[in-house]
Design a protein around this nucleic acid. Structure first.
Lengths: 135, 135
DNA sequence: TTAAATAAGACTTAAATGGTCGGACATAAC
DNA sequence: GTTATGTCCGACCATTTAAGTCTTATTTAA
């Protein structure tokens, strides 16, 4: 409960690794997996997600690998999370099949789900923290 | 991911209900369940957990029910969460089987799991928010 | 042409969550 | 002292989500 997923964790690790290894050669998924001793396939997939969302750039082929697409201080943690997490929806109204007609949204949610406000705060926290801050 | 569990949500609802219905009679688990249209059995169990952790006081028997044990401004959200959530351990070192011998804890965790710091912040947020604030 | 890399989707397994059931105990009211 | 109405508590089941694996295709430097 309220725990960050491995996906997010690995995504942070990978981007942190890329941020601190910006040499001539591009770090590969395998290199990252080995370094942190985490499953290769999983990291690979996560990097693909990050690539799709323009957080990293991927290079295919023999000398391939990954590099960050922006500077670490320009990458918000929420970008990384959203790239990796399929159903990331903290702030959404949680009513399902509820009577939303007489629901002035925020107020309604506040009554039925007192946590929305808190989740919004967490959301903001991720938004306001950059990758650089956790290097 | 990072979503609050139903247990926590129901616990908040229940305590909020108790906070706003402190009349002569004690609200029952059934009353709360009906009011919010949430599963009775589940709310009952959650209230039991809250009772065990001295957040609410339970009264058995015919005229039984529950009431808050403290004022809403004296109850921290983290108390409620901890009472209800079995494995709530955000700040704990996440290493398992890792080499903890040369691990000066905080630093080691920071390297291997950059999220510890963030999770700590979330922790603090819950600690500093009282039940009264979400009424 | 080959070796080393990413891309991608299907699949399997494991764990957590949400919810249910049944029986025991407590007590106010009759 | 019996009954109705409540809490207490542990075991259980079902579903969903998360985590990890497998396989095949594609790209590209040497």
């Amino acid at each position: 409960m309220l725990k960050l997923s491995k996906k997010a964790e690995y995504a942070f690790m990978a981007t942190i690794y890329l941020a601190s290894h910006s040499g001539n050669e591009y770090p590969t998924a395998k290199e990252i997996a080995d370094n942190y001793k985490i499953p290769f396939q999983l990291v690979a997939k996560i990097l693909q997600n990050l690539a799709k969302n323009n957080i990293v750039i991927s290079f295919q082929g023999v000398k391939g690998g990954y590099k960050l697409n922006k500077n670490p201080d320009e990458i918000s943690l929420i970008d990384i999370i959203k790239a990796v997490e399929t159903n990331y929806k903290l702030t959404e109204c949680m009513l399902e099949g509820g009577d939303t007609s007489n629901c002035t949204l925020v107020d309604c949610c506040k009554i039925r789900d007192p946590l929305v406000e808190i989740q919004r705060k967490i959301d903001i926290m991720f938004q306001e923290t950059s990758l650089k801050q956790i290097l």
